[in-house]
Amino acid sequence: MTKHIILGSVGHHFQTENRVISLFQGLSLTVSSAETNAIVGPSGVGKSSLLLILAGLETPQSGNVVFSDGGVAQPLLALRQQSGFIFQQFHLLPELDAINNIALPLKLKGDKSAMEKAEEWLCKVGLENRAKHKPSQLSGGEQQRIAIARAFVTEPAFVFADEPTGNLDEKTAKDIVELMFECSDANQTGLVVVTHSKALSKMADHCYELSQQGLLGYKDSSVKVA
């Protein structure tokens, strides 16, 4: 059943020592677990904050966030339990090898076939020969592949990615993007990616540009410009 995250007239700002920096106001957006979404925009405009609000990790200063499952509103904790994350810095645990890094969320949930599933995902991301390698022995692209596998291994409703190719060269970035979208398609997982990459954004079902003026949708008519 399709799940949705609905932002209703959301506004957000943050406070420095002597002034309030406003990020966005009256922003409304709906993302679906059956689609891929890209958020682009210049640095400092609040893309990452928007991603965290969508993931239910940050509470907006105004407006509301609703997670709906088959049209029924669910608590945001349920959203978090059905989410995966991909970070720009990969954030693999250095003391765990590749397979154990992927198995980590499954083990937490007490999945009895955690290692088998992790192995399966290791093959999916093309690193079956690197199972016992520690993150320090892997290249940046390989580390991000492991991070992607870790995010998708629990079959979440949504995966949130923050600048997933920011630390990678063009060729590797392209491979990573393709992998992410493939995984999303294959698992029917909603993907929300914050990126600077035009190429990446073009691959998404929906692309939004966040600027001082608000959020502008490129491909979908349901985007409400603030």
């Binding site: 990790l57 904790l77 978090r80 989410s83 954030h91 645990l93 980590l104 969320p105 937490l108 629990t154």
Partner: peptide, 14 residues
């Protein structure tokens, strides 16, 4: 390392 681990656990929905 612990900070990273705890952050990741939160990202797994804990």
């Amino acid at each position: 390392d612990d900070r990273k681990k705890n952050g990741l656990l939160l990202s797994f929905g804990l």
